[in-house]
Amino acid sequence: MKVTLIAGSNRTNATSTYLLKYIENHLKAQHISVAFVDLSELQLPLFSPDNWDFHPNVGRVLEAIADGDGLILATPEYHGSISGALKNALDYITAGQVTGKTVLSVSSAGGPLGVSSLSHLQTIVRNLHGINCPEWISIGYGSNTFGPDGAPLDEGMRNRVRDAVDSFVELTRKLTATAAAAN
C-alpha cells in the first residue's frame, strides 16, 4: 500500500506540516510506503483552466496522487477555510485521479479547532469522487506543540492521531482489496 501526504501550508515550520510528518512516521512504522508532498517546498503556479501545459512541479504532485492508494491532506485553517496553497494544488486534480481513494483530512487552527477547513476539504473530496475517511484530525491552539522528533507533546493528541490514521489505513486496505478483486 502507498499513501500520498500533501502538506498544504506554504509556511515554513507549519504545525499542520509537523502533524503530517508525525503521521508519515506512524505509517512508515507500519511498513506503508509514503510519498510526501510539501507545498512550502514544491510551489505551484496559480491554476488556470486555460493552461493545461503544467509546470513540472504540478506533474510531480499529480503523479504522487495517481500512485497513492490513499491520500492525506493537511492544511492550516485560514479565515474558516483551507490554505490557498492547498486549494490551488487541489484545483489541478481531476476526479479520475481521486475516484474511489480514501482521503483523510487534517487541520491545524490558531483557535480551538479547525472544523471549517475540514468540512471544506471533505466537500472538495466528494466533488473529486474520493471517499472521505469517517475520522478527521483537528488540532488547535494549545495542542499544537511538538517535540524534537515531530510527535505531538500531548499524549491524548498522539492517541487521537494514531487512531484516526489507523482507521484511514484500514479503510484504504479494504477499498484497495475490493478494487483489485473487481479487476
Rank of each mutant, 00 (worst) to 15 (best):
Q122G: 13
E24F: 01
V58R: 03
P76W: 02
T4H: 00
I32E: 05
S105M: 09
V165Y: 02
W52G: 03
V106I: 14
S81P: 03
S48H: 07
T176R: 06
V3I: 15
E170H: 12
N88H: 09
S48W: 00
S107H: 08
S117I: 05
V61R: 13
T12P: 02
S16E: 11
V115A: 14
N51E: 10
D67K: 05
E170C: 13
G142D: 00
H120T: 15
F168C: 08
L46D: 01
V3P: 02
H31I: 07
G59R: 10
N57R: 11
P76V: 07
E24H: 04
F168R: 10
A7P: 05
N51I: 02
G156H: 11
N57C: 09
V169W: 00
H129M: 06
T75H: 02
N88R: 09
L175Q: 01
A151T: 04
C133K: 06
A85R: 13
H79E: 08
H26T: 04
T176A: 14
R173L: 07
G80T: 01
I137K: 13
H129T: 10
V37D: 00
N127S: 03
N132A: 07
H129G: 00
Y78Q: 11
S117P: 08
D38M: 09
Y22S: 04
L118N: 15
P148C: 04
T15Q: 10
T178N: 05
K87T: 15
H120F: 13
N88V: 15
K101T: 15
T75E: 04
P112S: 06
D91E: 12
Y92L: 12
N159A: 14
N183V: 00
H31Q: 15
G100F: 05
Y22W: 07
D38E: 13
S108M: 11
L86H: 08
V103F: 01
D50K: 09
S107K: 07
S143P: 00
Y92E: 05
W52D: 13
M1P: 14
T15P: 03
S83M: 15
E63P: 06
C133F: 03
A95Y: 05
T17N: 09
D69R: 01
K174T: 07
T145Q: 14
L19D: 03
T94R: 05
T102C: 12
S119V: 12
A181H: 04
G130W: 13
N13A: 14
A181S: 08
A164P: 05
D166W: 08
H55F: 12
T145D: 12
L42E: 00
L42T: 14
T145F: 12
L19F: 01
V161K: 01
T176F: 06
G142W: 08
P56W: 07
K101D: 06
S117T: 08
G114I: 03
V169I: 15
L44I: 07
L90T: 15
